[in-house]
Every structure is written in C-alpha cells, then in structure tokens.
Amino acid sequence: MSTNEPGAQNPYDPPSGGNEPDPSRGRPGGSPPPEDTGGATHRQGSSPSPGPEQPSPYASGGVPSSAYPPPAPGMQYPGQPYPKNGLGVWSLVLGILSFFLCPIIASIAAIVTGHMSRRAAREGQADNGGLGLAGLILGWASLILSVAAIIIFVVAFGAAMNDPAFQDFLNDPSSWSTMNSDY
C-alpha cells in the first residue's frame, strides 16, 4: 500500500532521528559497542601498530580503487566499450560476402579491415581480434580463389582460341545453325 500523505515517512528512507546510528542496534542483547582504544588494537604477544589505523579500502563496499591498475596508454578501464570493435565485424562480413558478391573488391576490403582490426586489438582499442583474423583469412582465401579462377579462364580461353577445331568452327558460320537446331 502506498501512502502519499504529507508527513508520512517512506519505509525505505533512513530514520529521521540524529545522524548517529544506534550503537546497540544489530548487537545481540543490545550490548554496547566495544571500548574505543584510540585506533590501535592489541593482541597478546604482539606489538602495537605504529601510528593511526589505516581505513580499509573495502570500507565503502565493493572493490577498492587500487584493485585495478591504471590502464596502459591506448587501453581503457574494465567495463568500458571498445571503440573499434566494428572493424572486426566488418572484416568478417566482407570476407563472407567476397565469396558471393564482387569477389576482388570485397576480398581487398576484408583484408584491409582485418589488418586494421588486428592492429586495434594489439593496441588495446578493440577486443575482437579473432573476428578480424577470420575476415582476414576469408578475404585472402577469396582473393586467391578469384585470381586462380581468372587465370584458369584466361588459359582455357587462350587454348580454345588456338585450337584448330575451334578456329574452323568460328570460320564456318554454316555450322552455327546446327547448334541451334537441336533445341
């Protein structure tokens, strides 16, 4: 039930009393807190600590600020997004597309973005160097296959042009009509 009446206290707000917490709160039997020894704690057989007691880095809760060393130049603190992760994704996508659309152009683009992605990962500006490597490999594979296909086509076309039977076929137009009569 929600109370929106003026003056009603929210059960999640801290008590409106003084700023000091109740010392007996949370202690079994309401016993008072242990006696303050001025910040020094003594154990039997140990010497007192020299100087005031240092506050715990965990006092505010969570991980102390010194738990993570400062990042190296070009790197970011943990939990922050990396600005150049798109390069690895683009390299992979272009590497896949290079097998289907514009093989030479897409292959070169995949290779270039793959190298840029790997460099960004080495410098700590990205964390997906594996995607860049995959795009790089696919780009090179597609480029090699495309160049091999072009070479095979040129060699086969050159061999056909020098074949005497093909030359006779090209020089005798009457044989061309026999090709279409079968259909």
Score class of each variant (00 low, 15 high):
Pro164Val: 07
Gly38Val: 02
Tyr58Trp: 15
Gly79Ala: 00
Gly130Ser: 11
Ser117Thr: 13
Glu5Gly: 13
Val147Gln: 07
Ala120Phe: 07
Gln76Asn: 08
Gln44His: 15
Pro11Trp: 10
Trp176Tyr: 08
Val112Ile: 15
Asn162Pro: 01
Arg122Ser: 05
Gly26Ile: 15
Gly88Ala: 05
Ser16Phe: 13
Leu143Lys: 02
Ala110Gly: 04
Gln54Pro: 12
Gly45Asp: 09
Thr37Tyr: 14
Ser177Lys: 06
Pro48Val: 06
Ser47Val: 09
Ile151Trp: 07
Ile111Ala: 00
Ile108Gln: 09
Ala141Cys: 04
Ser2His: 12
Ser46Asp: 10
Gly26Thr: 08
Gly129Phe: 06
Gln44Gly: 14
Leu87Met: 03
Ala110Ile: 07
Thr178Pro: 00
Pro23Asp: 01
Ala121Gln: 04
Gly130Ala: 10
Pro6Tyr: 11
Asn128Glu: 12
Gln44Cys: 10
Ala148His: 10
Ile151His: 02
Pro71Arg: 07
Tyr12Arg: 12
Val63Tyr: 10
Ile108Glu: 07
Ala120Gln: 01
Asn162His: 09
Ile96Met: 13
Gln44Tyr: 15
Ala72Pro: 09
Asp163Cys: 05
Phe169Arg: 06
Pro64Trp: 14
Ile137Trp: 00
Ala59Met: 15
Gly29Thr: 08
Ile152Phe: 09
Glu5Ala: 14
Leu136Phe: 13
Gly158Phe: 05
Pro50Val: 14
Ala59Pro: 09
Ser91Leu: 06
Leu92Val: 06
Ala156Ile: 13
Glu20Val: 15
Gly38Trp: 04
Phe153His: 10
Glu123Cys: 03
Leu143His: 04
Pro50Asn: 08
Ser49Arg: 12
Asp22Arg: 01
Ser117Ile: 11
Pro78Thr: 06
Pro11Gly: 05
Gly139Thr: 00
Pro52Ala: 10
Thr37Asp: 02
Ala59Ile: 08
Ile105Cys: 11
Ile96Lys: 00
Gly135Trp: 07
Pro52Asn: 08
Asn162Cys: 06
Phe153Trp: 13
Pro69Asp: 04
Thr37His: 08
Ala126Cys: 06
Gly86Gln: 06
Gly132Ser: 03
Pro173Lys: 04
Ala106Pro: 03
Pro70Ala: 13
Gly62Gln: 04
His42Asn: 12
Asn85Phe: 03
Gly129Lys: 03
Ser31Tyr: 11
Phe153Ser: 09
Gly139Ser: 05
Thr37Gln: 11
Asp22Cys: 07
Cys102Glu: 13
Ala160Cys: 11
Ile151Gly: 07
Arg25Ile: 08
Ile111Tyr: 02
Pro28Val: 13
Ile152Lys: 14
Tyr183Val: 14
Gly132Lys: 03
Ala110Arg: 01
Ser146Val: 09
Met161Gly: 14
Pro69Ser: 07
Pro55Asn: 01
Val147Asp: 02
Pro164Glu: 02
Pro15Ala: 13
Gly29Glu: 06
Gly26Trp: 14
Met179Tyr: 03
Leu170Gly: 00
Asn180Met: 01
Gln80Asn: 09
Gly158Ala: 04
Ala160His: 09
Val155Lys: 12
Leu133Cys: 02
Glu35Ile: 14
